[in-house]
Structure formats: C-alpha cells, structure tokens
Design a protein around this nucleic acid. Structure first.
Lengths: 205, 205, 205, 205
DNA sequence: AATGAATGAGGCTTCATTCAT
DNA sequence: GATGAATGAAGCCTCATTCAT
C-alpha cells in the first residue's frame, strides 16, 4: 500500500488504456509500440517498465475487458430470480458493457477473437482462452434457461443450443454495430431480440 | 481467350486458394508471402506475377468468399415464395456456405471483419467494404420479413432490427463455431435458431 | 553438386570471412550486423539468408578456426615418428596456423576464449566447447611426450602437466603477439620455446 | 580526510568489487549496470555517484588487478638475490595472485585482454594499456634472466624471447585453468613449468 | 513465365544514462 | 547522497517486394 505501488499500478492502467485505444483504432497488428507511447504520453522505453512485450499488453487488455464484463453481468443477475428478467438483464448489461460504454475499444474485440481463435492450438491458455470464457458464458445462460423451463415460464427448448444462439446473437450484434454503428440502434435491436426471443415472430394463431 | 489466359486465371485461383488456407490457419498478419508460396507449391516471386501485393490477395479472398455466398443465397431464395421457407433457406445456406463447406478458411472471416472494420475510416478501397455487403444482406432479409408480414405469416415486427439480429445470430454462431467447433453442433443450433425465431421461447399461454 | 549449392556455400564462406575480419578488429560484442554487411559488400538482410543470427556466425567462425587448425596439426604429425620432431612440428604448425597465417583474425581468439569460458555453464556445448577442444589437444601432446619417454628420448616428466604447459605457452605467446606483434618475433620465440623445452635453461654442469 | 571521504572511497571499492564479480561471471559486454547495482546492494543511479560510466568501472577494475599483482610481485622479488629463486617466486606469486586468490574474477582477465588488445588502436586511454604492462613485465623477467646468466647459473639464452615465453606460459596456464579448473592442478603445473624451464625435458646424456 | 537471392525499411526491445524526488 | 522511473538511441532481426537470371 505504499504510494509507489499505487502509482505503478495506476500508470500501468494508463498505459493499458492508451494501448487499448490504439489497438481499437489501428488493430493490434498494425499498432506500433511507438503509437502506444505517444498515446500514453510517455517514452517508448517506458512501456517496458510496465509490460514485458506488446503481446503482454494485448493479453492484459483481453483480461481486463473480460473481467469487467463478467463482474458486471454477475452482479446484475443477482438482483432478481425471475428467469425472464435475468435474460433481459444479461442482454442489456452485455450490450451496455461490451458495446456502448466501451465504444472506444469495441474494435479491439475483433483482435481478441482472432487471436483467441488462433491461440487455441499453439499458445498459453492462461492468457487468452476464449474457449473457457465462452463455455462459462454458455453455462450461465443455459442455467437461466433451465431454471425458466423448470419454473414453467419457458417452453422446453434445447437450452444448450439456445444459449449458444443467444451469445451468438449478442456477439453478432456487436459485430455489426462495430461495422456500422450509425445503422444499428443497439437499444432497439436488443429489445427486439428479447421480444423475438420470448415470443417468436410467427403469429401465434 | 487463349489457353494461356485460362492457365493464368487457373493459377491465380490456385494461389488464392492456398493463400486463404494459410490466412485461415495463421491469420493474415502472421502469414508470410513465403508461406503462401510454399502452400501453393510455387516460388515466392511467382506470386507477384498474379497479385500485386499481399493486400491484394487479401482483398481477392474477401471478394471471393462474399461473391460465392451471395450467389448461393440468391439462388436458393428463388426456389420458393414462402417467407418462412425463405428464412429457413437463408439460414441453412449461410450455415453451409460460410461454415461447413468452407470449414478450412472460416478462420479468415475474423480478419475480414477486422480489416473491414478498420478500412471503414482509412481507405475505402471499394474492395473490402463490409458496410455495403451487410447493408445488402440486411435488405434481403428484411425484404423476406416484410413480405411475410404482408402475407400475414409473421407478426408485425421491426423488420430492420430483426434482420440485423438474424445476421448477427448467424455471424455469432459462426464465431462460436470457429472458436469451439467441437462444442457447437451447427445443424442443431441453426434449427433451434429457426424454431426460436419462429415461435419464441415463452410458453404461449 | 548443382551450381547453386556451390554458390551458396561460397557466399556463406565469404560472409564468414568478412565477419571474422570485423570480429577481429572490433570485437564480437561491438560488431554490428551492419558492419559485417558492409565488409561483405552485401545488404544487411542478406546475412540472414546464410546465418540465422549473429551468434551463429560467431559459432561458425569458431568452428572453422578450430577445424582448420586441427586438420593441419593432424596432418603434420603424420610425417614423422620422432617425438622430438613431432613436438617441433606441433609447435611450428600451431604458430603458423593460429598466428601468422591467420593474422587477420587472430584477435578473434580472445572472444572465442571469452565466450567459450562463459559457455561452459550456460549454453549449448555443441557449438562452442573449448573444454573438449583443449582436452583433445592435451591428449595429443601428452601422447607425443609419453611416446618420447618410452622411446627414451625424454626424461620421465609429468606428461599431463607438461602438455598443459606447452599449450599454455603457445596460447600465451599468441596472446602476447596479438597484443604487441611488433615486439614479438614469433619464429624466434617458438624456437627458443622448443630449445628451452628440450634443454632447460640451467647450465647442465 | 573527513570521514565522508573515507566512506566514499570504501563504497566505491565495494561497488568495484561487486562489478568485478559480475564482470567475471557474465562478461563485461553482457553485464548490465542493473546487475552491478543488485550485486552491490544499491540503487542503479547510485553507481553514477561513484563512477562516470560503465567503461570507467571497467578501467578501474583493470587498474586494480594489475596494480595489486605488480605490487605483490615486486615485493616478493626483493626477498632474495638468487635468480633461480626469483624466477620461482615470480611464477609462484603470479599463480597465487592472478589465479588462486582471485579465482572469483579470473574470468575478467579475458575481457581485460580483449579490450586491451582493441584499445591499442582506437583510444589509448592510458587506463587500459596492456602494452606497457607487458613490456614492464617482460623487462622484469629478462632482468632476472640476464642476472642469472651473468652470475653463471643460466645458460646464455635469448632472454627477451624467454621472458616472453615465461609470461606466455603463465598467461596460457591461467587461460586453461579458467576454462577447465577441474582438470588443471595449478600448483603441480607451475612446479613442472619451473622444473621444465630449468632442466628441459630431454635426457641430458 | 518462374524463381529465389538480395534488399532495406521498419519493428520490437534493450539498456546506459539522466534527473526529479 | 540515494534512488529508480523515464528515456531514446541503437541493435538485431523480419519480411514484403524487387529483379537478374
């Protein structure tokens, strides 16, 4: 708790923040350490006082985004027991966290995905392990769905598959929003998603 | 129309094919021209007889994938007038085209997306223009939905938003399948997607 | 035997030659890849077509010098069976090989020694293993000495130690010659060494 | 003469001591200022309160080793007038000083030599001047030899050359001992050196 | 047309040195 | 005086691209 530690951590966070913005704007591959340094308002060499390599910065960014999202989602789900409401919340919080709030570095998600996919085989799972993250995410959602089915509010659907689809839809929406934010009204879309999800699109007649 | 031209085109296609496989496996950024040459079984310099640069190869790959998908989807939709059936077909063909058939280079989609997103601002090559592609794709789907609503088979939903969601779900499913193919049964999932889309998950009581 | 292989090997040798001259003049640590490139009259990147790293160049230089010396010494010893003569030859050939002929890169020996010493613990023995080289060298000399003792031409001395000393003297002479070539008449000194070695300096009275 | 000055000198000596150990272990080129700071148990910046640069530390180390050796040899030679005994002493003291006692930083000699050799041309600092040191060393030994010849205890040999050889043998022995200390019994070897030097190896018949 | 040897711009990273605290 | 965070020059190496064969 010495002031130095606080400073160090704060500065590390600052650099990470700057790096994420540059990553988001230029893509990880085309981001130069010099870009990060400029964005952080420090010297090139200073980065290496806080991160061992460019890759480590990338991993840290990955961790941070996922940690943050997981925390927020986890918290929000504890505010109610109603599966319908939980599903709404999960979708809403995901939207807010991943997308609207994090607008600045949403673009970085592409590189997370790209790298996470490739890392599957080769690299250290510890740092960038999308598989685990998505598995947990799916469990969370299928849990809600199962709960809802048991409570009789949901039809008996294939919860595992539907969980995957819901995540897919969210990721996909984000993807489109990243590409064409001006064409995608996130709030409206997620509302429609929730409505569609609940009621389907076919006339129930 | 001389045989040489045919040869040239054939060889260009071969190189492109090889490039896409390497792109998919290693990612565009980490793919070396040498890798492509080896994969194509030719010399490094020969690539430049057919493509002006690495970027051009990438753009060509992008074009090819999208062209192919658009053609297949367009064709399949002409086989029926039933909006429900068209929606099914669109989802099914997308699954097959983008995913199952193209398993080998599905990974490349990540880079298409990533690059497509970034290109938005910097250099609108006209070659990699995701915005346009997705806009067309959305039009296609919302057309089906509007048609369905008009014909009374669909509830009056926000078709623009729902079109976006359907695309989102498809992209997202592909994303997850790329990440964890062993956990995602594409056929089942798209079936559930279609079912969920049509009927919703809530008990209609 | 294709011309390409010959060219490649020849060019590799050229680069090695250039590198050794620069190593000798500036020391390995202060030698820049750019220096080697200039000395070899090629581009910086071209070096990497033939060597994987600066360290590999250094190892190759090491190998070459030792291989060459070992060959020459081995050959010369086969020209006679007389231990006295063999000892003379060994000293003479060592002088010529290591020193006079190789004047240009004698300075590099310092770095061989320095690196060889340090490598003892840490690194791959395969490339720079002074221990083995000197052990073999000692065996060779003590073999001659033992032979001479058995044949009655040498006093019964501690051959292992004397072998070490002879090598030491040769290395040390080289060391001094490297430092002050103008003060050291190599031929005279090795003659005195041989004479001193044979007869001692004390008056035999 | 204030206590502070004494402290300063003491601390400077401590740092030098630490530096020499690290130099010996890792080699000068690969020694980082940070390594020295850690070894000395001080902050990196503190080193610069006592030395202007890394090079200055190296020069100081060089000076210290040579000064110390020169003093010890000079002292020991004054204990007798017998040239034979003086030669024995010189060899013994050299062995003890340079080698056994200084085991820890014997490795640094390599860098002294290497740097000393290179400095010859480029920058005669006056600090690292091997030429002068060896010239004095040779004078000392040839003086003993001449004295011995004059006194009739040595055969009339080429004293200048033999002096060079003796130094060479000592340096070379040290070199080998640095490389393979477990194979070299320094005491035995220098004894054999003295014996061989005095009596030669040939049977005097 | 095909090749691959050659190239050098440019990237990441290291580390001696400075300087504010 | 002591410190270590900050710095940027400089090094090694990669790789897209060129071009002589």
């Amino acid at each position: 708790m010495s002031p130095k530690i606080i400073d160090k951590e704060a500065k590390k966070a600052e650099i990470l923040q700057a790096a994420m913005q540059v990553f988001s704007r230029k893509g990880v591959a085309k981001t130069r350490m010099a870009d990060i340094a400029v964005a952080a308002g420090i010297g090139k060499g200073t980065i290496y006082e806080y991160f061992r390599s460019k890759e480590e910065i990338f991993a840290a960014a990955f961790q941070q985004v996922n940690q943050r999202a997981a925390n927020l989602i986890g918290q929000s789900l504890q505010t109610t027991d109603d599966p319908v409401e939980q599903l709404r919340l999960l979708i809403d919080v995901s939207r807010q966290t991943f997308i609207e709030e994090s607008a600045d570095f949403a673009g970085i998600m592409m590189d997370f995905w790209a790298e996470g996919i490739r890392n599957k085989d080769e690299k250290i799972l510890g740092t960038i392990n999308l598989e685990q993250i998505y598995t947990e995410y799916r469990s969370l959602i299928s849990g809600i769905l199962n709960d809802g089915i048991q409570k009789g509010v949901f039809r008996p659907v294939d919860t595992a598959s539907l969980a995957a689809i819901i995540i897919a839809a969210l990721d996909g929406v984000m993807l489109q929003w990243i590409m064409t934010p001006e064409l995608i009204d996130m709030k409206k879309i997620t509302d429609v998603l929730i409505d569609g999800l609940m009621n389907g699109i076919k006339r129930s007649d």
